[in-house]
Nucleic acid binder design. Structure first.
Lengths: 111, 111
DNA sequence: AGCATATTCAACCGGATGGTTGACCATTGC
DNA sequence: GCAATGGTCAACCATCCGGTTGAATATGCT
C-alpha cells in the first residue's frame, strides 16, 4: 500500500529535512552536530533523522555513543526518475517514455 | 517561509495525487472524470486537485460548468533541479524506471 | 562508582491532512 | 421555470506531523 515514493517525497517536503540533507552532502555527521545549527530541540532533529532514515535518504550507524548520519543519494534516484518521466513527456504516453529511455541509454554511459 | 518546494514535494507525497498526475499525462480531464476511477468522493478528489494546483503541478480552466485539469510539468522541474543538485548520480537508471512504470502507471491508469 | 555526553522515548499539544457528508452555487437542457 | 449535472464549500472526524519537555538508556571518562 505505501509506495516508497510516499516516504521519500514526504520526507523531502519539510525544509528542515532538506536542509539536513544539504548538510550531509558535505560530510557524515553525528546527530548532535546535525542539530546544532537549528533552533529546535535535539529530540525534534532526532525525529527528522528517523523520518529521513525511514525514507532511505540517510543511513545511521552507531559507533560508540555517537550515531553517525550518512547521505544515501540512491533513494533520491527513484524519485528523480519519477519526476523526469513527467518532465520529458509528450502528451501521448509510454512510447515517448521508451524513446526517452533509449536515448538516455544510448547517449549516457552504462550504470 | 514556505518554499515552493515544500508544496511540490508535499503534493507528490500522496499516491492518489501521483496517480492523478499520471492520468493527466495522457490527456486533460474534467474533475468528475479524474474522480471516477477512485473509490472516494468527488469532494476529496476536488481537494486533491486544489493541492496539485496550489503546488503548480496542474492548472485548472473552467469552460462552462466543466473544469478542465491540465498537467503542468514545468513545476516538477524546480524539484528535479533541487535533486540533481544533490545527486552525484546519473539522472536515469533502469531499475527505478521499471519500478515507476509498475507502481504508478500500471496501477493507476489501468483500473 | 559516578558523572557527563549522546541519543532516544513517552507523553503531550496545536495545527495540518485526508476523508466523509450534506448543503450550496453555476450551468445546461427540457 | 425546474430539474439534472459539475463542482465547491463547510462542518466534522480521525489520524498524522512537527514541535515541546522531562525521563530514560547507552556509552565514555576519570
Amino acid at each position: 500500500m505505501s509506495d516508497p515514493l510516499d516516504h521519500v517525497f514526504a520526507a523531502l517536503a519539510d525544509p528542515t529535512r532538506r536542509a539536513i540533507l544539504a548538510m550531509l552532502l558535505e560530510d557524515d555527521m553525528a546527530v548532535t552536530d546535525v542539530a546544532s545549527p537549528f533552533e529546535m530541540s535535539l529530540a525534534a532533529i532526532s525525529k527528522h533523522l528517523a523520518i529521513l532514515a525511514e525514507a532511505g535518504l540517510i543511513s545511521q550507524e552507531k559507533r560508540g555513543r555517537v550515531k553517525w548520519c550518512k547521505l544515501e543519494p540512491d533513494a533520491l534516484r527513484a524519485a528523480s526518475v519519477w519526476m523526469q518521466g513527467f518532465g520529458q513527456f509528450e502528451p501521448v504516453n509510454l512510447d515517448a517514455f521508451e524513446r526517452f529511455l533509449e536515448a538516455e541509454l544510448g547517449g549516457a554511459g552504462d550504470d
